[in-house]
C-alpha cells in the first residue's frame, strides 16, 4: 500500500509542472497582447480594445460558455449554430411582423430552447451519442432555415422597425460600459459559479469525468443531461438575440460560424484546469486569445485567410505546450 501512496513532499514536487501546465494559456495571451502592442500602434488603444471585446469576443464567448457546459458533461454540442439561428429567426420575424420587443425576445429564447429540447430527446431519450445527435440537429436546423426562408434569404429590419430596446441591447451602454459586455460578464459569472460551485455543476463534472461512477452513485444523470442541453441552447439563444440586434437582421445559418471557434476555445480552456477539465474561466481566456489574435492580425495587415492560419497555429502551439508539460508531469 505504502508504495502507491504519495507523501506530502512528493505531492508538492508534482505541483510545479502543474503550474507550468496551467499557466500556459494566460502566458500565451500575455505574449500575444505584448506582440501586437509592439507591432501595431493601433492595437493598445481604448477604442480598439473595446472593439475587440464587443465585436470579436462577446458572441463567441457566449456560445463557448454553452459549449463548455456540454463538453464538461462528457458530450459536445455541435448544434449551437442551430439554437442561435432559431432564436434569431423567431426574434427578427416577430419584430418584422410588428410584435412587441418582449414577445419577440421570449419567442427567440424559446426557439433556441426548442433545439436544446430536441438534442435532449435524442441524447437522453434515445441514447444517441451527443456528437451524432447534435450533428443531426445541426443538419436539420440548416434545412429548416433554408425551407422557411426561400432557400436562405435574410430577413432585414428597416430602421423604423428596430425597437429601442434592441438597439440598446446591441449598441447601448450602462455606466459607460457597452451593454453586450454586461450581458457576457453576467453569463460568465453565472456559469462559472454554476459549474464550479453548485451541486448541479459538480454532478455534471462527475458525469463528464466518469459517467458510470455518477450513475453508480445514484446521481440523477438523465435529468442533469437534459438540463445541460437545455441550458446550452438557452445560452446560445441569448447570443442569437444579440447578433440579431447588432445587425438588425436574421441571416440564415450564420450561427455555424461560431462552432469551431467555440470548440477550440473550450479545449484551449481545459489547459487552465489542473485536471484538464472544461471550465468557464479557461474558455473565456481561450475566446479572448482568439479575439485578440483575429483583431491583431487584421491590424498588422494580414488578410482573412492568413488570420485563419495564424489562429490555427496558435491554438496548436498552446495545446502542444500544455500537453507536453502534462506529459512531463506524468513522467516526473
Amino acid at each position: 500500500m505504502a508504495q502507491a501512496t504519495l507523501t506530502p513532499a512528493q505531492h508538492r514536487r508534482r505541483r510545479l509542472p502543474d503550474l507550468v501546465f496551467q499557466m500556459g494559456l494566460p502566458l500565451a495571451l500575455l505574449l500575444v497582447v505584448l506582440f501586437f502592442a509592439w507591432s501595431s500602434p493601433a492595437f493598445l488603444v481604448p477604442s480598439n480594445l473595446e472593439s475587440v471585446l464587443v465585436n470579436n469576443f462577446t458572441l463567441l464567448a457566449i456560445v463557448s460558455i454553452a459549449m463548455t457546459l456540454a463538453v464538461a458533461s462528457g458530450g459536445i454540442d455541435l448544434s449551437v449554430g442551430t439554437a442561435l439561428d432559431f432564436a434569431s429567426l423567431l426574434f427578427v420575424s416577430l419584430i418584422a411582423a410588428g410584435q412587441p420587443f418582449g414577445i419577440a425576445l421570449l419567442a427567440g429564447l424559446l426557439g433556441g430552447l426548442g433545439a436544446g429540447l430536441f438534442n435532449a430527446f435524442l441524447i437522453v431519450g434515445l441514447g444517441i451519442t451527443p456528437f451524432l445527435a447534435t450533428l443531426g440537429t445541426l443538419f436539420i436546423g440548416r434545412s429548416v432555415q433554408q425551407l422557411t426562408t426561400g432557400g436562405g434569404i435574410p430577413i432585414y429590419l428597416s430602421k423604423a422597425k428596430v425597437p429601442e430596446a434592441a438597439t440598446f441591447l446591441a449598441h447601448g451602454d450602462i455606466l459607460g460600459i457597452a451593454t453586450p459586455l454586461w450581458v457576457v460578464t453576467i453569463l460568465i459569472v453565472l456559469f462559472t459559479v454554476l459549474l464550479r460551485a453548485t451541486p448541479f455543476g459538480r454532478r455534471v463534472t462527475a458525469i463528464g469525468v466518469q459517467p458510470a461512477v455518477a450513475w453508480y452513485s445514484g446521481l440523477p444523470v438523465r435529468r442533469d443531461l437534459v438540463l445541460v442541453y437545455l441550458l446550452s441552447a438557452l445560452v446560445v439563444a441569448v447570443a442569437g438575440l444579440m447578433l440579431s440586434a447588432t445587425v438588425n437582421a436574421y441571416v440564415p445559418s450564420s450561427g455555424n460560424a461560431f462552432l469551431l471557434n467555440a470548440i477550440g476555445a473550450t479545449f484551449i480552456g481545459t489547459t487552465l484546469d489542473r485536471r484538464g477539465r472544461p471550465n468557464v474561466p479557461g474558455t473565456v481566456l481561450g475566446v479572448l486569445l482568439l479575439a485578440v489574435v483575429a483583431n491583431g492580425l487584421l491590424l498588422i495587415g494580414w488578410n482573412f485567410y492568413w488570420q485563419q492560419v495564424g489562429t490555427g497555429v496558435l491554438i496548436f502551439l498552446v495545446l502542444v505546450a500544455s500537453f507536453a508539460s502534462r506529459r512531463w508531469r506524468k513522467a516526473g
Binding site: 463534472t205 461512477v213 450513475w215 453508480y216 445514484g218 446521481l219
Partner: peptide
Amino acid sequence: DRRGQGVALDASVRDNTTLASLARFA
C-alpha cells in the same frame, strides 16, 4: 468494478467522498 464504477479516478478524494451527498454541503 471499483475503478470503473466506484471511484472517479481523476477526481480528488473530496470530490469522490461528497459526490452522492452534495446537497448536504450546499
